[in-house]
């Protein structure tokens, strides 16, 4: 698997580390139920998945990668935020 880093170009996946689903958002309130959903519950789709990868052995940027979990095909990689 190769990830097209916007700064570094296409790089081997082993240069990156994985955090997970980029679609969950930290709740604005301190409501426990909302935090439970944010920390624990995931859509876990079979198909396109927006996910955080960190380019640890490169530019050290956080990326949001869109990847198909059925084929590992990567459709896009952009800077997080």
């Amino acid at each position: 698997m190769r990830i097209p880093c916007p700064y570094c170009g296409e790089r081997d996946a082993r240069e990156f580390s994985y955090l997970g689903d980029a679609s969950v958002a930290r709740p604005a309130t301190d409501d426990a139920a909302a935090y439970h959903e944010y920390v624990n519950l995931r859509a876990n789709p079979a198909g396109p998945h927006r996910e955080f990868w960190y380019h640890a052995s490169g530019c050290r940027s956080w990326l949001v990668v869109t990847r198909d979990t059925r084929t590992h095909r990567i459709d896009s990689a952009e800077l997080a935020r």
């Binding site: 997970g20 689903d21 959903e37 624990n40 519950l41 995931r42 859509a43 876990n44 789709p45 079979a46 979990t69």
Partner: peptide, 18 residues
């Protein structure tokens, strides 16, 4: 391995990644 997909058929979201 497919628990999230099948549980989603009943509208559930699970604390699981595949």
């Amino acid at each position: 391995g497919n628990s999230s997909r099948v549980a989603a058929l009943a509208g559930l979201r699970l604390p699981i990644e595949s």
